[in-house]
């Protein structure tokens, strides 16, 4: 260990500094766009599983089981190498030739659809944790099922799942590193690349690690505030973890 040549300043030199900045930018961008897919889609799938309609529940269950029982990396390869081959001819041509940043968008799509299955499970358990009597009380007052969701189940359900949703968001942020397997230059792959070019392994990985930890800490802090602000008076917050 004593023989290790520390070389922190090299990280401030170009192109390495630029690599880290762009890698970090890409990581954040992938995570945010994928979440923008995962949150609404996952909510819809999760809610489908709480309705009384058997076929809607079945679709929701099938979606969740499909996406959470295949390793994310295998899903990434399927989206990148298999799906373009199975598309109709002109679509396939477009994806292979004209689509801008195919790796980036494939990774975003893959992460978004995968994370949606996790969001769906949180939303479902949040709604199901609400006592049945609440639904009954809403219906007994003459609210329609749609109104019961809108005014009672959703506002209460989403509040209780803020902590698990926070870790799912952090999950997509960390999982964005898998995009490197199909050639997206995000934070981890840039760190790896710097290591290969300069042999400053510790410096490169430590920088990436610190950036990941900083974002995690920041997100948790923000979400704790959100949780506190939205907390219902007289109840106890669970605390984001």
């Amino acid at each position: 260990m004593g023989a290790y040549n520390w070389n922190w300043p090299i990280l401030l030199k170009e192109p390495y500094f630029g690599w880290i900045v762009s890698g970090f930018g890409n990581t954040c961008l992938i995570a945010v766009i994928a979440w923008a897919i995962a949150f609404p889609l996952g909510s819809a799938v999760g809610l489908a599983r709480t309705t009384e309609l058997p076929w809607l529940r079945l679709i929701g269950t099938a979606y969740v089981e499909l996406f959470r029982n295949i390793p994310l990396l295998a899903q990434m390869f399927v989206w990148y190498y298999v799906v373009p081959e199975l598309l109709p001819n002109d679509w396939s041509q477009w994806v292979k030739r004209d689509m801008p940043y195919p790796q980036f968008y494939t990774a975003v799509l893959c992460l978004g659809l995968y994370t949606a299955s996790r969001v769906a499970e949180q939303v479902r358990s949040g709604i199901e944790a609400i006592p049945r009597g609440q639904r009954h009380a809403g219906l007994a007052m003459g609210l329609t099922p749609g109104q019961v969701y809108r005014y009672i189940l959703l506002p209460v359900g989403y509040r209780t799942i803020i902590p698990p949703l926070t870790s799912d968001f952090l999950g997509v942020f960390k999982n964005s590193s898998l995009a490197l397997t199909i050639g997206v230059l995000e934070l981890t792959s840039q760190a790896r690349q710097i290591e290969e070019y300069t042999f400053a392994a510790f410096e490169a990985f430590a920088t990436a690690t610190v950036l990941y930890c900083m974002v995690t800490g920041l997100v948790i802090l923000i979400m704790r505030q959100v949780e506190r602000r939205t907390r219902i008076a007289g109840t106890i917050a669970l605390g984001a973890s």
Partner: peptide, 22 residues
């Protein structure tokens, strides 16, 4: 908390390069 805020891939890279050097 430290390990839980890191991507697994990065952890793999860490140990892959760290262990031989240490």
């Amino acid at each position: 908390n430290f390990l839980r805020s890191m991507p697994l891939i990065l952890v793999i890279f860490w140990f892959y390069t760290l262990i031989p050097r240490v």
